[in-house]
Computed example of a mutant assay.
Amino acid sequence: MTKLFATRFALVATMLMLVTPAISAQQADEAPPPSKPGKPINNGDVLSGELNAMKVRDAKNGKRVATYQITSEPRRLPPPNGLCNLETGPETFQLVTASDAQAAQLKSFVGKEISVKVDEVACASDPGQMSEAVITKWSIIRKQ
């Protein structure tokens, strides 16, 4: 009986010695790097990222409206917006379309990398906004 106990104890001890370094290594990998605020974006700067399309309901009449969003690296906005109450700044930017022509222009770029010149940007403030920041005036930059 003692020999069986000693054998099982040795087996458990060996397993613990093999598993413990793997667990501690996994925990070290999961620790996120210290977050730094993103680089600033000002009016006139270029923002690049993947364009996504979302369907949202208009608050006024309940119709579905196409909404476009750029996912980019974190960026700081000019004062007084700053980091939009985030540690690193916003990563998602909603593009507000002023006309059907702008909406049609964006529709052809969905799922692709695009660059836009930012003319006016602010933190999201309305409950219906799906992004962390909103670009109200912009223009697409054509690649040369």
Results as ranks from 00 to 15, higher is better:
S131E: 05
A66L: 04
Q102G: 00
E132Q: 12
V96L: 05
T2I: 06
N81S: 14
E73C: 09
G111A: 02
I114D: 00
V46M: 13
A31I: 08
Q69Y: 03
M15I: 15
C84A: 02
I70Y: 01
V56M: 03
P78T: 02
A31H: 05
I23L: 13
V96Q: 07
K3G: 08
L18T: 11
T20A: 15
F9T: 08
T67D: 12
L11K: 13
G128E: 00
A122C: 09
R64A: 15
A103T: 07
S115T: 04
T7M: 11
T92Y: 05
D119Q: 10
N61W: 00
T20G: 12
V65E: 06
D29L: 15
E91W: 14
D45K: 07
A98H: 09
R57F: 00
R142K: 14
T88I: 07
E120Y: 13
N52M: 08
K137W: 12
N43P: 05
L11H: 13
T71K: 13
A28P: 03
E113M: 14
E91C: 13
P32E: 05
L16N: 08
K63R: 09
G49M: 12
S99F: 09
P80Y: 03
M17E: 06
K63Y: 04
K137P: 07
L4A: 11
A25D: 06
N42Q: 13
K3A: 14
E87M: 14
M54E: 11
L83A: 07
Q26H: 09
V56A: 01
C123S: 04
P33A: 14
C84S: 01
E132L: 03
L18K: 11
K137R: 15
T14I: 09
M54K: 11
I70W: 01
T7R: 12
P90E: 05
P32F: 04
R142N: 15
T136Q: 09
Q105Y: 03
N52P: 02
V12I: 06
R142E: 14
A28S: 13
V118R: 00
D100F: 06
K143L: 15
G62I: 00
W138K: 01
S72C: 06
V12P: 02
G38R: 00
S48K: 11
K36E: 04
R142F: 15
T20I: 15
Q26N: 11
L51T: 03
R75E: 05
R64L: 15
T67N: 10
V19W: 11
T67C: 10
I140E: 07
D58N: 04
V116P: 01
P40I: 09
N52Q: 10
R8D: 11
K107E: 14
K117V: 07
I114S: 00
R142G: 12
V110N: 06
L18C: 10
I23Q: 12
L95M: 00
S125A: 10
A98W: 04
D126T: 09
E87V: 15
L83Q: 11
N43G: 10
Q26L: 14
Q129A: 08
A124T: 08
